[in-house]
Design a protein around this nucleic acid. Structure first.
Length: 575
DNA sequence: GCCGTTTTCGGCCCGACTGTTTTCAGTCG
């Protein structure tokens, strides 16, 4: 059973319970359990088989039993019973901005409204304004919310959201009142998709900033505007939230608005036990309400006895335990990257010449690129035959003679064929510097077959890297089915690196699997899969994924110098 | 419902904004 389906059952359970006015902490327990399950790196079955479900933080006896039940029957009795109490589409009401469980429940109880269509009709007829807790304004907002929900296409890729945020920040930065500014929220944590853009400003004068913000050219509509906080909607129906705090509170506010929710709850609970209180204005000593930290983020963590925790790993709370023990590693960073091992040229489906690619890579400070045009089977991408490979190799050799302190490594993106065989013979592969093997065909095969294809590629000593291992393209397709535990173990054991593909739609290997692979002793490479020179810029998204997966420079092959990399590649073949 | 170098019972993060109220509940992050 897919973890997301299990998580969904608990998400819904939480929402039903909240509508019914159940104990809010019980609601939160289900909500938390759902989020925890959704983020598990190992399959739930792994814990269930070992009887270790309750060892997962946030999962206790009751929810563990329900997970077991779901794994066995596909359903949860408790959830099914709750579902029966409401019309089938009632939860969709809560997708409407401004409508939460309480109002949704009133709508159902008083007017038998159970779907967005019924809600829209009632609102248009002016029937909502007389309900308790509702009014004309609420009715208007509901209609607006319905329009928004209709036109909104869900979450945005970080590759889309980050440039938008950077543009807004660049605009606001010009204001003389702005002392400091940063993105916050899931964007700053560099999640792969973003629900809305959060921006935080430090200033002693919030008013002119709020005014300038709501008048930005991108703003289509102002959703809310107070003294220090405003929300707007862009023409693309993306919500942007701005918060202004005084410079003395900037660090505390940045910490607070970066989240995650889970991380903040853990941090605040911990602070309370130490006699402190944290809010977005600072850390305060409870006994005399004296502020003891808050100007910088570092100060907030320091006063709690914690190492500074990078935003990318502020998720489950596990990072807080590590920070207490001083075990937060120095995460890999853009400046560590010394090359890109997955690059296409005009020889296959890329557009640039070797010289152009090399020039761009050199301008980024790289020592090398690994040229990896497609192999012969991928005919739609002008895959190279062995003859063309040989010819390409010669051209690269010639070109390399002209470079100083830069090298094009000879390589290929080798198709893993449907039967698990590879697209080139070993004697050709042996002559290459670096071989990336990828699945490009027969995505519908079952999990065992696909996993077998990936693992048999790992077992060939001539294969150095597995490219975009899940095959997903966010917003387009889910990717093929992989037994991750088996695949990652095989990759680690055979010392085959796994690629983090930096294409914003791919970001594949994903963060949670990075951490799992690291724990198994495996290595990754962070590559762009560039098909033109501009794609090199996407490296930063791959680096973010690696950081979210707690990876250090030693875990990432392309942080190695050229000599160290070649030595590593050679040594693993000899084993 | 979960959890415990205070606890197996009694807690559970915290504040801004809105709209409906006449002091506050609901929603959001």
């Amino acid at each position: 059973m897919d973890v997301h389906q299990i998580a969904e059952i608990f998400f819904e359970t939480a929402e039903f319970l909240e509508m019914k006015g159940e104990n809010p902490f019980k609601v939160r327990a289900y909500d938390k359990a759902a989020r925890v399950i959704d983020g598990l790196a190992k399959p739930v079955e792994y814990y269930a088989e070992k009887g270790e479900l309750e060892s997962i933080p946030g999962i206790g006896k009751s929810i563990a039993e329900k997970i077991t039940e779901i794994l066995k029957t596909g359903k949860c009795r408790y959830h099914e019973d709750l579902k029966k109490e409401f019309p089938p589409a009632i939860l969709t009401l809560m997708n409407i901005q401004g409508l939460g469980p309480k109002k949704a429940y009133v709508l159902y109880k008083e007017m038998k409204i159970g779907s967005v269509e019924e809600l829209e009709k009632a609102a248009r007829e002016g029937k909502l304004r007389d309900l308790k807790g509702f009014g004309r304004k609420t009715e208007e907002n509901i209609l607006k919310g319905i329009e928004m929900a209709k036109s909104q296409g869900g979450r945005l890729l970080i590759g889309t959201a980050l440039p938008m945020a950077e543009e807004i920040i660049a605009h606001l930065k010009k204001l003389p009142e702005v002392r400091a500014i940063s993105e916050a929220g899931s964007l700053r944590r560099r999640r792969e998709t973003i629900g809305d853009i959060d921006i935080l400003v430090a200033s002693s004068e919030s008013k002119p900033i709020m005014e300038a913000f709501v008048r930005l050219p991108i703003v289509k509509e102002i959703l809310a505007k107070g003294d220090t906080k405003a929300s707007v909607l862009t023409a693309e129906n993306l919500q942007v939230d701005l918060r202004v705090v005084s410079p003395e509170s900037y660090g505390a506010a940045l910490q607070y608005f970066t989240g995650s929710k889970e991380h903040n709850i853990k941090l605040r609970t911990m602070a309370e036990a130490m006699g402190y209180k944290i809010n977005e204005y600072g850390v305060f000593r409870v006994k005399d309400n004296k502020k003891i930290a808050g100007e910088t983020e570092e100060s907030v963590y320091k006063v709690l006895g914690l190492q500074m925790i990078p935003p990318e790993i502020r998720e489950s709370g596990e990072e807080i335990k590590a920070a207490q023990k001083g075990e937060i590693p120095r995460l890999v960073a853009m400046e560590d990257i010394k090359g890109d091992l997955h690059v296409h040229s005009h020889w296959s489906d890329g557009v640039n010449t070797f010289e152009e690619l090399a020039g761009q890579a050199q301008s980024m400070g790289y020592e090398y690129i690994g040229l990896s045009d497609h192999s012969q089977s991928l005919k739609v991408a002008k895959g190279l035959t062995p003859e063309r490979m040989k010819k390409q190799g010669k051209e690269i050799d010639e070109l390399n003679k002209k470079f100083k302190n830069f090298t094009i490594l000879k390589g290929v993106e080798l198709d893993i064929l449907p039967d698990g065989k590879l697209d080139f013979e070993d004697e050709l592969l042996e002559k290459l510097d670096v071989v990336t093997a990828s699945v490009h065909s027969n995505f519908k095969q079952d999990k065992k077959t696909i996993t077998g294809r990936l693992c048999s590629a790992c077992k060939n000593p001539n294969v150095d890297i597995i490219g975009h291992p899940s095959g997903r393209i966010m917003g387009q397709r889910d990717g093929y089915e992989v037994d991750w535990d088996e695949f990652l173990k095989t990759a680690a054991r055979t010392e085959t690196a796994v690629e983090i593909n930096s294409f914003p739609e791919r970001l594949d290997l994903r963060d949670t699997y990075c951490k799992e692979l690291k724990d198994m002793g495996g290595k990754v490479t962070i590559n762009t899969d560039a098909h033109n020179v501009h794609h090199f810029a996407w490296m930063k998204f791959g680096v973010s994924v690696a950081r979210r997966g707690w990876l250090e420079d030693k875990d990432v092959l392309n942080t190695y110098s050229k000599d160290k990399l070649l030595k590593w590649l050679k040594s693993r073949k000899e084993k």
